[in-house]
Every structure is written in structure tokens, then in C-alpha cells.
């Protein structure tokens, strides 16, 4: 049985904080509906991936070290992003392994860190949400969530309970969208082709909505679809699950 009312820290991620607060609020709503008491610790910025994946290990470790205390007091840390959750869960321990005391502390935080949809289903036992969304959606599995955390069925299970929504799979569901953080700007031609292929796959699915659990990938795919003039609506999965469709237009769209 899940604990009655765990204290959850929301690690909102830098992209949701800066670009799409709607995702943060949707996450809060879902967590509260799942019986959690949600806190947003002040002392958080970013999980450190930009530095870590650019070879700047020192800064990445320092970001982890400084963020750690803000997350320690909670029962769980929940992240509306597979890649940032994987950073906290799998890579922070590697970054702080050299200091025995820190290693123990970061290990404890890592062990209680979860990607949002996985937390809801695997930890809280949620299998349905109170939400409605008219449309046919394809769900894109973001690479880190899929391969580092095993997030695959969890969002689909929750989406199945959304009234009016049909969920389809992409033709190449395991294919990367070409985001890859700074990769997208360092190798724009390659990234552009990858996201173009992804957009082809999305359009061929016949869906009118694209959902995923990672804002980086979503901005990449939404940006490409928008550039092509596609009418496909792009949203973070939490927005649909939290019935937050009215709170904001789809990613990359203006207010009607």
C-alpha cells in the first residue's frame, strides 16, 4: 500500500520553469490528486545536464552538490522529465561518488527520485485520471526515460483513462527525435534531419496530437511541426493527464 500522504518535492526542470510553467502546475495537480503534499524547493535551477553532457563535469558536480540539500528533506523527488529524472537518479551518484559522505546522501536522493508518470503509477498505484481530451494522440517515448528509467507503459496506462482520447504508437517508436540538448544547436543539419524524419512519422500516424514526457524533445518536435505548418497540437503528457488543456495553448502555438 502506498503511504497515506507523502511529502513530495517537485523538481520542476529548467525548461518547464522558463518555457512552460503549465507543465509544473499540471504536475502539482496530478501529484496532489494522488494524495501527495507537494513542495517546490526554492534552491533548484537545473539538473546540470548541459554541463555534464558537454564535458564540464566539475560544474555539473557542483550543481548537484548545491541542489542536493534542498531535496533531502522529502519522501520523494518527482520530475516531469525522463532525462532530468535520470540525471538525478543515475548520474548524480556518479558525479559525487568520490566523497563518501556525499555519496551516501546523493544515493538516498537518487533512490527516491522518480519521473512523474512512473511515480504516479509505480509508486502511487494510480491507474486512471479524471480528465478529458478530444483527439487522437501519438505518444513519443523520450530516450532517457525509455532506456534509462524504463518509462514506457506508465504514461500510456494513464492516458488510456482520459475520456475522448485515442493513443497510437509511432512507426519507429524507439527512434530519437534528434534533440539531444546542445546537439540540436551544435549539429543542426543532423538534428534537423532526425526531427524531420520524426515529424514524417508523426504526420503519417494520422494523429492530431503529439504527447511526450520531456519538454526538450517536445520543443524540438513542436518547432519542426510548426516550421512545416502542421496543425498537430503538441503537449506535455502531464497537461493532458491533469486536464490542463485550457490553461495554455499547445507548445509553439499562440493564444487563440
Amino acid at each position: 500500500m502506498p503511504e497515506p500522504s507523502p511529502n513530495v518535492a517537485l523538481f520542476v526542470t529548467c525548461l518547464a520553469d522558463l518555457f512552460r510553467p503549465t507543465v509544473g502546475f499540471a504536475a502539482v495537480r496530478l501529484l496532489e490528486a494522488a494524495g501527495c503534499t507537494v513542495t517546490v524547493p526554492r534552491a533548484q535551477t537545473c539538473c546540470g545536464q548541459p554541463a555534464y553532457n558537454s564535458g564540464d563535469r566539475e560544474d555539473a558536480a557542483e550543481i548537484a552538490r548545491r541542489t542536493l540539500p534542498a531535496l533531502e528533506p522529502f519522501d520523494y523527488v518527482v520530475v516531469p522529465s525522463g532525462s532530468c529524472a535520470a540525471m538525478l537518479r543515475l548520474h548524480w551518484p556518479a558525479l559525487l561518488a568520490d566523497d563518501a559522505e556525499l555519496a551516501t546522501r546523493v544515493g538516498a536522493v537518487a533512490a527516491k527520485t522518480w519521473e512523474l508518470t512512473s511515480f504516479l503509477t509505480d509508486v502511487r498505484g494510480v491507474d486512471s485520471v479524471e480528465a478529458a481530451y478530444e483527439g487522437i494522440a501519438v505518444y513519443h517515448d523520450s530516450c532517457s526515460g525509455l532506456r534509462e528509467l524504463g518509462v514506457r507503459e506508465q504514461p500510456r496506462r494513464l492516458l488510456r483513462s482520459v475520456a475522448g482520447l485515442t493513443v497510437r504508437d509511432l512507426g519507429a517508436p524507439e527512434e530519437c527525435c534528434g534533440f539531444g540538448g546542445l546537439f540540436a544547436v551544435k549539429y543542426p543539419d543532423i538534428s534537423g534531419r532526425m526531427v524531420s524524419d520524426k515529424a514524417d512519422d508523426i504526420e503519417a500516424s494520422g494523429a492530431d496530437t503529439l504527447l511526450a514526457g520531456d519538454l526538450g524533445c517536445l520543443m524540438n518536435m513542436a518547432g519542426k511541426l510548426k516550421r512545416r505548418g502542421s496543425a498537430i497540437r503538441v503537449r506535455h503528457v502531464a497537461e493532458v493527464l491533469a486536464n490542463a488543456g485550457d490553461a495554455a495553448p499547445p507548445i509553439g502555438e499562440s493564444e487563440a
Binding site: 512552460r20 510553467p21 540540436a184 543542426p188 518547432g223 516550421r227
Partner: peptide, 19 residues
């Protein structure tokens, strides 16, 4: 590097932290 290949979705405005 970003906008050569795709649009950049605009931020909603205030940050989550501010809201």
C-alpha cells in the same frame, strides 16, 4: 543553430518559480 531547422516555441511569460 536551433532556428535554422525549426521554430523555437516561445516561453509562456513568467517563470514557474515566479508564478
Amino acid at each position: 543553430g536551433w532556428t535554422a531547422e525549426r521554430d523555437l516555441p516561445a516561453p509562456q511569460g513568467p517563470t514557474f518559480q515566479a508564478l
